[in-house]
Simulated scan of single mutants.
Amino acid sequence: MIKPEQCERLTRKARKTLEEEYGLGAVADLVLNAGRWGIRLDVSTPDEYRRTGNSRVGGHPDLPDDLDWPLTKVGVPMTFLAQLNMVDLSPYTPNDGRGTLPERGMLYFFIGSVDAAYPIEHRVIYEPSTHNLVNRKPDGVTALGGEPTVAHAVTVLPNLEVPTFAYIDVAGLNEQGSASEITSNEEGTLAGSLFDRYRAFESDWNHPSPLNWGGMFGYPDGQHPDAEHQALSYIELGEVYGGSEQECVKKLTAHYDGDEERTWEELSDTLLLLKIDTHDAIGFQWLDCGELQFFIRSADLEDEQFDHTCCSIYSS
């Protein structure tokens, strides 16, 4: 779990950056209160497979002998993305209740082919033990094809992630910020120096280094704040999200026996388990420099059940 002193240090740094570098002191409380504690994942050195069981992104996984390589529905080997050792991650598990990872074991991520459609065929596998693992290669070309990805060791860091473009409370910015700095353009969306400064801050704060390849429990990239609607619609209803938040809430409420309060609780408890950015050094390219996103319900995460997840892709 993230130590209180780490939280305090990151919060102070974020507040100072908002105030002194971006002139956003008036909205600092709004931004920080909406921040999500999570885990930042960076590449370290290229992984030459000198040991097994470490956290790794790209390349080939270390798997138990009795675990079959995941296949797509048509029998093609899925593409390995990452293996995350829980011992590396547990010191940075969010302490705000948004995610509880197992203390031991390995979490593996595999996917099938990737296109703009969703959900993407995938497997998230949890193995409670990291003993007796063997480095394995797929039997043939995997679903993504192309050049093999380059294995890298993973550096794990605590993270305070602020709302992305789609998730920032624009009305709150308007209300708490200086009204003289904000104007509305012809389409009615927020424009002006305050919002532009926030977008610059968010980009620099959430993506501080080219080493960063992913993260857990933060905010997804997107044009609309409905990634959780999309994921929960698939996980709970088995339906592809139609693009209407209102219609999705209506269907979920019917699924939960008319309990709309539970619907909103479930949406709030739909967590971004892992996001993976386009990253040249590893060899990840998600359409037009997009982001791969894995979602899970918090109840399933607490029960260490990783069979009910959703994988989708965002690309501008």
Rank of each mutant, 00 (worst) to 15 (best):
E175H: 12
L190A: 11
G242N: 06
E260D: 00
L194G: 06
N212S: 13
D169P: 09
A200C: 08
D196F: 08
E260C: 02
F195D: 08
P148S: 09
L190P: 05
I182R: 07
N159K: 09
E181L: 15
E239L: 15
S244G: 01
G177M: 09
E187S: 15
T189W: 12
D204N: 05
A171Q: 06
T164D: 01
T263P: 03
T149G: 06
L173E: 02
V162C: 11
Y167K: 05
E239S: 13
I168A: 01
E175C: 12
V240W: 03
G188T: 12
E239A: 14
G192V: 11
E245G: 01
T263C: 12
A191H: 00
L157G: 15
K251Q: 12
E228F: 04
V240A: 06
W264G: 09
Q176N: 05
E239Q: 08
G192N: 14
F195C: 08
C248M: 05
Q223K: 14
C248L: 10
G188K: 07
D259I: 10
G177Y: 03
F201M: 03
G188C: 07
T253F: 00
G218R: 00
W264F: 13
S209E: 04
A179F: 04
G218Y: 03
L173K: 09
A200M: 08
P220K: 04
V162E: 09
Q246E: 13
T183Y: 10
G214M: 13
T164G: 06
R197M: 07
S193P: 14
D196P: 01
D257T: 11
G146V: 15
H229D: 10
E181W: 11
G258T: 01
Q223C: 11
L190V: 10
Q246P: 03
G215L: 04
G222L: 11
D259N: 15
I168V: 05
G242F: 13
D259F: 08
S233V: 13
P148C: 10
A231C: 11
G177W: 02
N185R: 09
M216Q: 07
D221W: 00
A200S: 08
G242W: 03
S178K: 15
L190S: 07
E181V: 15
H229M: 10
I235R: 02
S180T: 13
A200P: 00
Y167C: 01
V156D: 09
N185A: 10
T253P: 00
D169Q: 04
V150P: 04
Y167T: 05
W264I: 14
Y198A: 12
R199S: 09
P208R: 04
A254F: 00
E228M: 06
T189Y: 12
G214A: 10
F165W: 07
Y241L: 04
A231E: 11
E175M: 11
V150W: 01
L160Y: 00
V249P: 07
G222Y: 01
A153V: 12
V240F: 02
M216D: 01
V240D: 04
G192T: 14
N212T: 15
T263N: 00
E175G: 13
D226M: 13
A179D: 05
Y234Q: 11
G243Q: 02
L267M: 12
E245R: 10
L267K: 07
H224T: 14
N206L: 01
L173D: 02
P148W: 09
